[in-house]
C-alpha cells in the first residue's frame, strides 16, 4: 500500500509542482495550452533537393523525429542553426538514396478568426542549408540565430 500511496503522491506532485522533466511523473499537459481563437496555427516540415535534382517535401519522421519534437526544439521566429540542418541531412543521407544536397525547414502558418481556420496559408523558410553539390537557389534567412532549446521548463 505504501507503494500505491507513493504513486498517488508523486503523480499529484507531478501535476502541481513538476515539469515534463519528471517523466513518468510529469504533469498531464497534452492539449493544456489554450490558444486565442484569433491566433495562428503553425506546423513545420522539411523541403529538400536531392542529388538527382528532385525536390521533395518531407516530414520529421523521415529523420527519426516526431513533428512535435522538431517543433518543440525549433523556434519558428529564429533561424535554425546550420549544424542542426547538417545533422538532419546526414541522418537522411545515411538511410536514403539519392542524397539530400539542399535542406530547408519550412513553417506553414494558418490564421484563425473567431476560432475558424481560414483558407490559405503562409509559408516561411527559417533554415536553409546546402552542401557543395547543390547549385540551385538558396533562401537568405533574415532572422536572428535560434538559441539552444530551453529544456523541459513547462
Amino acid at each position: 500500500m505504501l507503494g500505491s500511496l507513493a504513486m498517488v503522491a508523486s503523480t499529484l506532485a507531478g501535476s502541481f509542482l513538476w515539469t515534463d522533466d519528471a517523466f513518468p511523473m510529469a504533469p498531464f499537459r497534452m492539449f493544456s495550452y489554450g490558444n486565442s481563437p484569433n491566433s495562428v496555427v503553425r506546423t513545420m516540415r522539411f523541403e529538400a533537393d536531392l542529388e538527382n535534382g528532385e525536390h521533395v517535401r518531407l516530414d520529421a519522421s523521415t529523420v527519426g523525429l516526431r513533428r512535435a519534437e522538431l517543433e518543440e526544439q525549433t523556434n519558428p521566429h529564429r533561424r535554425v542553426p546550420d549544424e542542426n540542418l547538417e545533422a538532419i541531412a546526414a541522418v537522411y543521407n545515411e538511410r536514403h538514396d539519392p542524397d539530400m544536397v539542399h535542406l530547408q525547414v519550412v513553417v506553414r502558418r494558418i490564421d484563425m478568426v473567431d476560432g475558424v481556420p481560414q483558407s490559405g496559408e503562409t509559408i516561411t523558410v527559417i533554415g536553409d542549408w546546402a552542401d557543395d553539390r547543390y547549385t540551385g537557389e538558396r533562401v537568405d534567412v533574415d532572422l536572428d540565430l535560434a538559441e539552444p532549446w530551453g529544456g523541459y521548463g513547462s
Binding site: S15, F16, S32, Y33, G34, S36, P37, S39, S154
Partner: peptide, 20 residues
C-alpha cells in the same frame, strides 16, 4: 487541473480543439 493551471478558465473558450 493542468489545463486550468496552464491556461486558466479561458481554456474553455480557447481554440485548442480547432488548433488540434
Amino acid at each position: 487541473f493542468t489545463k486550468l493551471r496552464k491556461s486558466g478558465i479561458g481554456w474553455i473558450s480557447s481554440a485548442v480543439f480547432a488548433r488540434a
